[in-house]
Write a protein that binds this DNA or RNA. Sequence first.
DNA 1: CAGTGCGTTCATTCCTGATTGAACGGAATC
DNA 2: GATTCCGTTCAATCAGGAATGAACGCACTG
Lengths: 163, 163
Amino acid sequence: MNDTAIDEFIQAMGQLWHSEGRPRIAGQVLAYLIVAGEPRSLQQMCDALQISKGSASTNARLLEDTGALRRVRPLGARQDAWLAVPNPSLALLQTVTRRFRTSADAITRLAGAFPEGMAAAQGRVEDFADFYRRSADFMDEWAARVGQDCQAEPGESKTDGED
Amino acid sequence: MNDTAIDEFIQAMGQLWHSEGRPRIAGQVLAYLIVAGEPRSLQQMCDALQISKGSASTNARLLEDTGALRRVRPLGARQDAWLAVPNPSLALLQTVTRRFRTSADAITRLAGAFPEGMAAAQGRVEDFADFYRRSADFMDEWAARVGQDCQAEPGESKTDGED
DNA sequence: CAGTGCGTTCATTCCTGATTGAACGGAATC
DNA sequence: GATTCCGTTCAATCAGGAATGAACGCACTG
């Protein structure tokens, strides 16, 4: 809440996610962990972001599902620790891609059921769906390329334990 | 409301838009006009989708802003008519692209203000932003390619006056 | 210059999904 | 086996934006 640049980043990510129809807190959690660069516990998230334990848990798992976070139990286990994956935006892009493809399939299926005599409309709707599908293909290609780059340049291994 | 395949498509588009944090009605309007393939008046939208005049107006203009709809006054003017552009999804993709780029810029700017001694965190955040920026570039490229295709194959000019 | 038809605006209502916080369950510890 | 410490779940609350519809403004018509 001090409105440091870091807090602003975390808030901005919250807004960004919110504007895309996803939970604001998920964006904040991701931002927090990207900044941290190291595993953080649920409790640390709660303290740093001033959110409830339930929200932290729910949203961390949501991010885990999208592949942006990884959950680890460091050594001797006492509590979970959460860590942003090396290239979180890659995971997010893949989520978008998956959604595009799902939408495309759904629309294509519906278009297939259009009544006789609506061939032109059907064609337009199918074109619409195809665009999504082809975009998804294109994005997969892009993601694959970035994924390789990511392995090629392992990134920094330094850590800075703030907060 | 008859739950024909066409109505289902319109409803599905509404849900899709809703799930992406955009007004459900905007998705329905776009779907309706894609199916129609011809200009439709606000009144026709209201009747077909059972929405208020205000919603129809607001959401049609919203879609106009994104470039998915075009407003025309056919011959002698008595009321506006709305028309889905030939490749609406292209406009939508460009909207996404624009958003990516805006986000990237905002994040980069914030990262630039990170305090000394947070170089590693700063680097991670900048990488995050860069990914969005480069993805946006990539999508522009893709959009340009599709735009060309679109001009090359003018699509069907047939119409089918349903609703 | 009153009357009509159209689109926009805006205050209000409504609705949905995010967020909370208490209760629960399970594992580890003593 | 009691206790403590976690993480998860879920019912209740809250917040924010979508949708409405009445009022407004404007342009054309007679």
